[in-house]
Simulated assay, not measured.
Amino acid sequence: MFITFEGIDGSGKSTQSRMLADSLRADGREVVATREPGGSPGAEEIRRLVLQGDPDRWSAETEILLFTAARRDHLERTIAPALAEGRIVVCDRFADSTRIYQGLTRGDLRALVDRLHALMIGREPDLTFLIDIDPGIGLARARARKGHEERFEDFGLPMQERMRAGFLALAAEFPARFRLIDGNRAPETVAAEVAALTRAALA
């Protein structure tokens, strides 16, 4: 099974993806925990290009190409081999983030994102958890953490608000694979709900 976590910056999705991977391993399952952009050597190089520097460093169109290139390498070298071996892949972000960040909040480019995704990636997750949180709280959390990538966070609260609306619309568009999770609760409470929903999907 291919499981992804989505949400605005500071939503807690990275924490939740790690906690789910740990929970599944405790159940005796083989799990590959990974992230985007990144998750393979080539994709990690691209990550450094796109998540650091001036907010206007790249156009939205260039970002879409860079993220798609990183995702293709990630798929080839990490995700597809793990799934072929019967492992569960838990990924912090996937194509839905590109649909929102570049496709909607930085221009009306969703159709371009989807065309490139169909051409170069060709698969969706089996299960996606959207960790929903107040945009102001998320931005404050994101800016407070160590080692954060400042570029997207520097677009500020209005972008966070547009991203949240975009993610909620995406969850409504793909209800079969999305599970909407209230991220305003304690991490352990959120993790328990995520684990229970995952086990139900795996049953």
Rank of each mutant, 00 (worst) to 15 (best):
M1L: 06
T4C: 08
T4Q: 00
E6P: 00
S11R: 11
G12N: 12
Q16P: 02
S17Q: 09
R18N: 15
M19E: 13
A21Q: 00
D22T: 06
D22G: 11
S23A: 13
L24K: 07
R25S: 11
D27W: 02
D27H: 10
R29S: 06
R29K: 11
R29T: 10
E30M: 03
E30A: 13
V31L: 00
V32Q: 10
R35C: 13
E36W: 11
P37V: 01
G39Q: 05
P41D: 09
G42C: 12
G42A: 14
R48L: 06
V50Q: 09
L51Y: 09
Q52I: 02
D54M: 14
D54A: 15
D54Y: 09
R57D: 14
W58N: 07
A60T: 00
E61R: 06
E61A: 12
E63P: 03
E63Q: 08
I64C: 04
L65G: 15
L65S: 12
L65M: 13
L66N: 12
A69T: 13
R71H: 03
R72D: 06
D73Q: 09
H74P: 05
E76G: 14
E76K: 01
R77N: 06
T78M: 07
I79M: 00
A80D: 06
A84L: 13
E85M: 07
R87I: 14
I88S: 08
I88L: 12
V90W: 05
V90H: 13
C91N: 11
D92K: 02
R93P: 13
R93Q: 01
A95N: 10
Y101E: 02
Y101T: 01
Q102G: 15
D108C: 11
L109N: 10
R110V: 11
A111L: 02
A111S: 07
A111T: 08
A111P: 08
L112F: 03
G122W: 00
G122Y: 03
L127Q: 05
F129I: 00
F129A: 01
D132M: 10
G138K: 00
A142C: 09
A142S: 07
R143C: 02
R145Y: 15
K146C: 04
K146R: 03
E150C: 02
R151Y: 10
F152S: 10
F152H: 01
D154T: 04
F155H: 03
P158K: 02
Q160D: 05
R162C: 10
R162M: 11
A165R: 12
F167Q: 03
F167K: 00
L168V: 04
L170I: 01
A172L: 05
A172C: 13
E173D: 10
P175F: 09
A176T: 04
F178C: 02
L180T: 09
L180Q: 08
I181Y: 15
G183Y: 09
N184W: 01
A186Y: 01
P187D: 12
E188T: 08
T189E: 14
T189K: 04
V190H: 00
A191K: 04
A192I: 05
E193P: 07
E193H: 07
A195K: 13
A196P: 04
L197W: 15
T198G: 12
R199V: 05
A201Q: 06
